[in-house]
Design a protein around this nucleic acid. Sequence first.
DNA 1: ATGAAAGCGCTAACAC
DNA 2: GTGTTAGCGCTTTCAT
Lengths: 333, 333
Amino acid sequence: MNKTIYDVAREAGVSMATVSRVLNGTAVVKDETKAKVQAAIDKLGYRPNAVARGLASKRTKSIGVVLPDVSDLFHAEVLRGIEDIATMYQYHIILANSDAREDREIDLIGTMWEKQVDGLIFISERITPNIVKTFELAQLPVVLCATDDPEGRIPAVSIDNKLAGTDATNYFLHLGMDKIVFLGGPTTHPITMERLAGYERALAESGRELDTTLVLHAKDQHYEAGYKISNEFLDAGHTADAVVATSDELVLGYLNAVRDRGGKAPDDVLLLSFENTRLTTMIRPELTTIAQPTYDLGAVSMRLLTKLLRGESIEEYTVLLPHSILERTSTKR
Amino acid sequence: MNKTIYDVAREAGVSMATVSRVLNGTAVVKDETKAKVQAAIDKLGYRPNAVARGLASKRTKSIGVVLPDVSDLFHAEVLRGIEDIATMYQYHIILANSDAREDREIDLIGTMWEKQVDGLIFISERITPNIVKTFELAQLPVVLCATDDPEGRIPAVSIDNKLAGTDATNYFLHLGMDKIVFLGGPTTHPITMERLAGYERALAESGRELDTTLVLHAKDQHYEAGYKISNEFLDAGHTADAVVATSDELVLGYLNAVRDRGGKAPDDVLLLSFENTRLTTMIRPELTTIAQPTYDLGAVSMRLLTKLLRGESIEEYTVLLPHSILERTSTKR
DNA sequence: ATGAAAGCGCTAACAC
DNA sequence: GTGTTAGCGCTTTCAT
């Protein structure tokens, strides 16, 4: 496979410029010579070297994806959406895990620049001023994905988290639930705070007081953290009629804490979560969720990025994907 | 950030070769000049262009990872292992999903060559002669990961699937179980067949007949397929004392089929699966599994690849990672 | 419609 | 210990 464009040119009896033209369709080539070139390519089994091409053209056809952790189901599904659209547009993915650490994130933006990616899709828990500064320094087209944009200055694809928080809470309110727990990530997690704001709004609109003992902030969005804080909540003698949790794993933590005490869902508590990963239907009871279009979050981000790369004008900087409530057995009595 | 090495050289009053040397530590440079160069780099905010570097050195410091589907939890965890070790050795990951389709896999090996990756980690359900041929054509260092090697000619990191199948079955046999279901992927899936061979061996060694109605082949390794075939099995009036399933999702399918009929685990049936993804502890009952070192499968593969890349001699082509049985509540009465 | 030639930004001999 | 000089394999003017 290690032939060069020059070998093909000689084999076909044309110049390398012509070979380049048929390869890229960058100019009109007579059908006859095109055929000759194609024949030479096939004969030699020639494959263009993307690195050389990248250096010469200054476009690498690869895009960077920075996310906290691929082994998190939500991210993995988003990534799959990114990948599929990238493939469709002939882009490749350079993947990097940040563990949601700002220093790693900033570092990775730099290495993505070094790799000369054409653009970047960035999934993070928290966009800080330092990160924004690094984006500007790197002069990379960036799309934020499933990530709250601080000042709305960076193109982003997300859902309306505050509204979703309100919808989730109202859903339980309409069901006549009284003690509704909000179970989210830490207070430093903007998405959690958005959803919490929605929760508070729904309570206020229904004329209720906010009971802060019902607001639970887990260490992070994962199962273990949810399980831990739920146990603490229940051990303290508290109970709840319903739980709104910001991730599928968190709500599973609550569910199992209840189960470990001999309780059941939906009999003893109604459960609702926010991600709609495949987890929701793999467990019993199946989970009612705010259906975030996980895959689409990635797919739309990538599509937006291709527009940016083609220099198309973007009407809206922040794309809010619609969410909906998917009722499953975890909220049916 | 778009300075070149030449700018740095001029700023520091040295040649670009010297800058390259301090950048790569490829030759001894006087401390004094080294400091000058470093100062220039810092002042200009210079970052080396990895593409140019790749073209000149013929090493890109990136490795390709081809796997069926990132959004599969098992693959995502393996990928995380790969990524961590890759980062440690300063490699980057170019990721591609194959959907386990041979044509895509072959195609992707080609595009990975075009991208000039230094090496390839390949996760597949099935290594065909065509794939092996493409590996040879591409002349890429390849490590198979969690993938059955047909002729043992390609470096691979895996577990001893047959032995694991035997261990799993014996575990139930020792527990006095009688009707043990084997629930796996399709018969075209080599890993399923290896584990099935282990299952059959264990039965034979205990002097039992193989009851083929207890051998279930789902369409694939996913939850939905497991749920479907389990329902068919139960609808046909069959029952089982215990289930050995080749993936965590498959066994969840069986569990939920039983539950939908009012049954319970471990009360009515004991369950054991094979992957030990995070799923196993997120559900109730927690699943007893053959603990495949998921993360390590990726990590060790990547480590093996770095050895290959450094031209180190490899003692053993096939690395078999140890497995063990992790007893959890799904097999405790 | 095609060819010649100049880079892209770096590494790696080869000199000194 | 440091500088000079070819390339790496391609794209892209600029001619023709």
